[in-house]
Design a protein around this nucleic acid. Structure first.
Lengths: 215, 215
DNA sequence: CAAAATGTTGACCAGTTGGTCAAAATACGA
DNA sequence: TCGTATTTTGACCAACTGGTCAACATTTTG
């Protein structure tokens, strides 16, 4: 049994990685309920029985995929630095999230699916670890507001706007493709320009004086 | 057979309505694949066989629910008026979408699920009817840009930002609840204030002179 | 190289699911 | 009230799904 053995063999490592990485595509496309172990097995190029030799249930595969993706997906927010220039920090965060949306749309859709279905797996994580990190970042935003660097508002809504706006390009890619035929590089460049222009300009507070110059 | 008879009887009308309206909750909570006819039957308070007497398949129920919801959900955009004050028109649209997100979160989630799964049902609609409407509204935004009423950018991204930001409060309600414990009325009021403050301010163009006054 | 450990899979199983059908129950018009 | 049309449902079916298992294949190791 792979789980109990002291050392992971070469084949174990290879196959577990293969299952997890190909499962991301499957789960993100069809959701948990909509994905079958047969689909995963075919995507990974092995038999269903073999998939279930490495992960004892479909749910275990799903958990492994979530864990594998979660850190990467939420990482950029940790970089938001209280000591940096406020608007530049926010812009950097936005760009990082936009880039993730472009390079890892499947990860975004995996989470969107999970949350839409009521976050049955990551619900507890949201209320503890994620909330803790978010609370820390909210404190930073509040400080910037008090310093007059950005406008004053309930800070969590800025995070919601950044998350929703950037993730939209991954989660609703099908709708976007139906409405806009421009190539993806142009689309994402335009998106970045729009968000920079509007959001960052709209955030500037009374005492703002930073890398963007006063207008 | 209910579909063929010339007149819909009272009972037919009642039951079909009941099935469609209770199915919205089911489909929006679990997605198409995750919902079962048994769940729908239980939610509607009748036997599965009876549900399938009124709709010949699960897919037909889903289509009826989508059709029933689609119009309502996309309606506010039609109101965006080329002759109105630009920022006021946009603000009105944002408020209408926020209100829908608050009063009909299930509708929002139904579409989010459908789009996430690749829009298998409404894909064609997106490329024709919706695109046509959106193109018309883009033309209005371009006019406002040329008049200097709002900043210049690729206009479709404003729609994307409004859609994503407002729908986020319905689609990601679970995550929001995990991160923010304030009552829903406060949450939505704060959201509206934030979006008004930041987005509308960020949109103002060089020649702007409207209901909001010059700052 | 041989035996022990690990890896692989077809066949199979039980539970679920979408959908059918005949028969019973109810509503309704004359 | 009675006969016809509509409504309702329990029993049933075939396809699908997650998961098991014994037998076979390959890799690793002494």
């Amino acid at each position: 049994m792979p789980g109990i053995t002291r050392k992971r063999t070469r084949i174990q490592a290879e196959n577990e990685n293969r299952i997890v990485s190909t499962s991301l595509d499957v789960f993100s496309s069809y959701g948990y309920r909509g994905s079958t172990v047969d689909q995963i097995a075919e995507a990974a190029g092995m038999s269903k029985a073999n998939v279930l030799y490495y992960f004892k249930s479909k749910n275990d595969i799903y958990l492994a995929v979530l864990e594998d993706t979660l850190e990467n997906w939420l990482n950029p927010l940790t970089e938001l630095d209280a000591e940096g220039d406020p608007l530049l920090e926010i812009q950097t965060y936005i760009h990082a999230k936009l880039k993730l949306s472009r390079t890892s749309p499947a990860a975004s859709r995996l989470f969107a699916n999970e949350i839409l279905q009521g976050a049955p797996m990551i619900g507890p994580y949201l209320k503890t670890d994620l909330k803790e990190m978010v609370d820390g970042k909210i404190a930073i935003l509040k400080k910037w507001m008090q310093q007059g660097e950005i406008k004053t508002f309930e800070p969590i809504h800025l995070l919601f706007m950044i998350w929703s706006t950037t993730q939209h390009y991954a989660d609703f890619a099908i709708q976007i493709a139906a409405l806009d035929s421009s190539p993806k590089t142009k689309l994402h460049k335009d998106a970045e320009m729009f968000i920079d222009t509007v959001l960052l300009e709209g955030l500037k507070g009374p005492n703002y004086s930073g890398a963007f110059g006063q207008q």
